[in-house]
Design a protein around this nucleic acid. Sequence first.
DNA 1: CACACTAATGCGAATGGCCCGCAACAGCGG
DNA 2: CCGCTGTTGCGGGCCATTCGCATTAGTGTG
Lengths: 166, 166
Amino acid sequence: MAATLAPHSVEDVLELLRSRGGRVTTSRRVLLAALFEGGPHRTAEELAGEVQAQLTDVHLSTIYRNLDELERLGVIVHSHLGHGPATYHLASETHGHLVCEQCGTMLEVPEELFAALVRAARATYGFVVDARHFAVVGRCSACAALPARARGDVPAASRAEVSGSL
Amino acid sequence: MAATLAPHSVEDVLELLRSRGGRVTTSRRVLLAALFEGGPHRTAEELAGEVQAQLTDVHLSTIYRNLDELERLGVIVHSHLGHGPATYHLASETHGHLVCEQCGTMLEVPEELFAALVRAARATYGFVVDARHFAVVGRCSACAALPARARGDVPAASRAEVSGSL
DNA sequence: CACACTAATGCGAATGGCCCGCAACAGCGG
DNA sequence: CCGCTGTTGCGGGCCATTCGCATTAGTGTG
């Protein structure tokens, strides 16, 4: 709910913002443009980079504040993939994540994959699952094929390559 | 190896440790005792507290290093519940977590709850899910009943009370 | 049982991700 | 054009975790 504010154009969001007593600033406009144009899964820092490409003086903390605000408005959502920084994306582009804890590859998966879990959690515990917020970790098909507990031999060097070649 | 090292007594683990070229130190002994005796879901800092109650000079970084080591051996597992610090518990006491992002309450749930997801992920993507490592977030029955948009009004003050009254 | 070899530790400092307080600034309604 | 108040830049702070390094202490061996 929250009234399904999800699909918006930049202008729509700005208007929503204004209607809530917020103000339309350049940094917000640019941040929104970045969110709407670029791919999903960008970290605050990446987004900051994109914004700063056009507006050199935008401070990281402003990015965080604006991301928070947008999230409060229901426009975007952030997820924690693996151990690294959170990633942000439009609420309308929502999906689940499977992250390989061995090689760092990330798979985006449709929310339906979680349907049974969502149903069971609600039925059994009255708990409404938000399958998008935290990634589901495990091992991807390639790594799963390796000798099971090779983990000891392969330190977490992988982490550097989060999200593989996506 | 590779093999179900999960259920151990303190001594078993120490022996495993030694057999891998590791050394049995007092801090490890005490840390293991804490892990075996106390409840699940303790953070590194909490564990450090318990260890230091008996061995005043154990440094936090030693706790982290030992926890890492134990995890590498497959003796313990750590999970990320909500946004706070990670929690550690014995691999044998494994279960999933549902964390309410509104009030912070945590539910421990049997792994079966994830059975369908695990099956689907493997069937569709060849991905082997580890449902324990990251919590599944959402809203608990109480919070789900509230007007959906209360989020903006209730800052994340909740985090302090993680794990509610369990 | 002493020794050497090297794992483990204490310590402090650093890192990374994120948030805060404050004073200056800038939308927006009037 | 003004003033009210939301926003921003900036710098510093905080928390969880990690690192480097010199020192200490398990261990198998002789």
